[in-house]
C-alpha cells in the first residue's frame, strides 16, 4: 500500500479522459483507432502503478493480458476495416 503510486495513477487517468476528444472528432478512422491504442497503453501503466499502490501483485498479470491483446484490435482494424475497404474497388490500389 503506497499512496504515492496511487497519486501517479490518478495523474494518468485524466490523460485517458482527455484523449477521448480525438475519438469524438477524429477526421479519419485511423485516428480513432490510434487513440484506442493509447488508451490501452495508459491502462497498462495505470495497472502497473495500481499494483504497487493497492498492494496487489495479481494486477501485473492483468497488465500482461492487456499488453498481449492490445494489438489485436488495431491489427483487425487495419487488415479488415481500413485496408479491405479499398481493396474491393476492382483492384485499384488507391
Amino acid at each position: 500500500m503506497s499512496w504515492m503510486h496511487t497519486i501517479f495513477a490518478l495523474i494518468l487517468l485524466p490523460a485517458i479522459a482527455t484523449g477521448m476528444f480525438r475519438i469524438l472528432r477524429g477526421p479519419t478512422a485511423a485516428d480513432r483507432m490510434m487513440t484506442a491504442q493509447l488508451f490501452g497503453t495508459c491502462g497498462v501503466a495505470i495497472l502497473l502503478l495500481l499494483s504497487t499502490g493497492m498492494g496487489n501483485p495479481v494486477l501485473l498479470d492483468i497488465a500482461l493480458v492487456f499488453a498481449l491483446l492490445a494489438a489485436l484490435a488495431t491489427i483487425t482494424f487495419v487488415r479488415r476495416t481500413w485496408h479491405g475497404s479499398n481493396k474491393r474497388n476492382h483492384g485499384n490500389p488507391l
Binding site: A30, Q37, T41, L60, L64, A70, A71, I75, V78, H83
Partner: peptide
C-alpha cells in the same frame, strides 16, 4: 517481478510498433 515487468514492456513495444507500422503503411497506400 522485475522479469514480469520487462516482459510486459517488451510485449507493449512489439505490439505498438507492429500496429503503428501497419497504420502508417496503410495511410501511405491510401
Amino acid at each position: 517481478v522485475t522479469a514480469k515487468l520487462l516482459l510486459i514492456w517488451l510485449l507493449v513495444l512489439v505490439a505498438s510498433s507492429a500496429s503503428c507500422h501497419l497504420i502508417a503503411r496503410s495511410a501511405m497506400q491510401k
